[in-house]
Design a protein around this nucleic acid. Structure first.
Lengths: 304, 304
DNA sequence: AAACTGTTTTTTCACGATAAAAGACATTAA
DNA sequence: TTAATGTCTTTTATCGTGAAAAAACAGTTT
């Protein structure tokens, strides 16, 4: 499937699907540039979308007039898997292998083999590995292969050490932000979402990780330091796959975390640096514990 | 020049040049695998080197017997510029443009144009930009171009903030290392080199930046945290180009820094955490000052 | 005139192909 | 029987190419 293909049109397909959802809401579509901004794509792509919608008799299209003819049905949508970017496909395949047992530290990674297995070109795999290397899980040998460093206890400890350093500093910066800063409104919004989730935790516990990420990113942004903000990508990636892998006690864990977040938010709103520090430390400690207990360590930690 | 060329043989040429220097020291060369380890290349490359050395009558080569016939002359060496990796060539070109006036923040970076200008393929430029993005100076717009964030005062401040956080922690970890750790010998070696350089600073001041990097890397390594160790790459890159660009008061600056390093080393050796912290802070403060004064800020700092 | 649509050009993304370099296997010498 | 050399295979590094997508330009409509 798909060999020899130069470039998939997933941007178009994804935007098309999103545009279909817009159709429910209006009787006619806005101008091409406006649609482009709305969907986050260029006008070229917008025009391809409109052309297809006309073909499938979803709309009539004549210059400025784009009249909706009917509501979209499930069959109008492109299949989900065709809307993924190649980078996402490669990342998922790679992480599946990495988290599967048998991915020992020190194991070497073969670009060609990975590319063949996933069914993509080597260039895309190379670029993925280069991007991925900043997560500290793989390392390149000059003129040679990549080496897997492994999702080990040592990795988790190094990661959380930096995370704690950065978040404590960000939280302090957050508390020191002037009262008229828009972050306080954002924080209030997040607080409401937390309270709502806390009330319905029994059924909605799996929605926590998305809220968790938004909350921590808001705090990190207060540091106004690109290295701190960017580092949250590493944390988010690890936690994303970690939670996908380890579902044990998910409900309990998340319930505890929501409570900690609410205390943390309370501390931030008090703008008392001592309280902020304490609440932040407490939450980070339990987050680290959660991560650590999920990593089985059957080998001695390797030196250097 | 060089169009259509798949891959340059710079690994071979560089190893060849380094192998020539070995010739001065011995009358016969070791085995192929041994030479490979010595030069950091595969046996395939070693054999190409030996083949050429035989051709140019530098050695006779018959199975295990590799007898040196004559000392190499300057003409035997490949030109320096042919030994550079493509990544280095691209980095240099890119940094030259970036540091040249006219590289405004917000300016967009064009892969194709860069590739054409440097005379390399787009793939190599793309891979370079991905690797380079971790330095925080450029940012990718999804499905579109890269944006230059600029070598601004804000960048320098964000960079030094992290650097100070990491180095203070590393220095403390260093001082806490057991007396029998090999780092103390390394530190003594560096101390000697500093004293030597201090004595001859008038003529050797330009050798400081290399020593500086080795010293700080030793300290960062004590953190035993890959993210801290890796972050020194960012600092090293910035300081490398910064010093190349800004030669004003180089001698004075370096003289002061050598003195600060010696005090810092003294503090580490005392293993008194208070002294270490003070010496580290003092040096980092002046390092930051040096970096900041060299960045002309003619615009207001832009809001996020 | 401002904002839109129609058309053309440029750039990004991803592939297969090929030389350089690494690595594996087979053979031979110490 | 260990460690080298000789030979063959695989992988990495880099390019040119072509389709997807963005961006620029030109002409229209309100």
């Amino acid at each position: 499937m798909g060999q020899g293909m130069s470039k998939s049109n997933n941007v178009y397909k994804d935007a098309y699907n999103r545009c279909l959802r817009l159709l429910d809401e209006t009787r006619s579509l806005p101008s091409e540039p406006e649609l482009g901004t709305l969907l986050g794509v260029s006008r070229t792509t917008v025009r391809s979308i409109l052309a297809r919608m006309e073909e499938t008799r979803l709309i009539t299209w004549n210059k400025r007039a784009k009249t909706v003819l009917r509501d979209p049905v499930p069959d109008d949508f492109f299949p989900e898997e065709e809307t993924d970017t190649l980078a996402d496909i490669i990342e998922r395949s790679f992480m599946r292998r990495l988290l599967a047992s048998g991915a020992e530290a020190g194991m070497q990674i073969n670009e060609l083999e990975l590319a063949r297995e996933i069914g993509v070109g080597t260039t895309s795999v190379r670029e993925f590995l280069i991007r991925f290397s900043r997560f500290g899980l793989i390392e390149k040998r000059r003129n040679s292969h990549w080496v897997l460093k492994g999702f080990t206890r040592a990795f988790a400890l190094e990661l959380t050490e930096i995370r704690e350093m950065f978040e404590l500093r960000s939280a302090a910066a957050f508390a020191a932000l002037p009262q008229d800063s828009p972050v306080w409104a954002d924080l209030n919004g997040l607080e409401d979402e937390h309270r709502l989730l806390a009330r319905e935790i029994a059924t909605r516990f799996n929605e926590f990780s998305e809220l968790d990420e938004r909350f921590h990113r808001l705090i990190h942004r207060a540091s106004r330091n690109r290295f701190i903000v960017d580092f949250y990508d590493v944390i988010a990636m690890i936690f994303h796959y970690h939670y996908q892998w380890n579902k044990a006690q998910e409900r309990e864990r998340n319930e505890v975390a929501v409570g900690e977040h609410l205390a943390y938010i309370e501390a931030l709103k008090s703008r008392d640096l001592g309280k902020v520090d304490a609440a932040c430390r407490k939450h980070l400690k339990s987050a680290r514990q959660t991560l650590l207990t999920s990593i089985p360590e059957n080998r001695l930690p390797q030196k250097s």
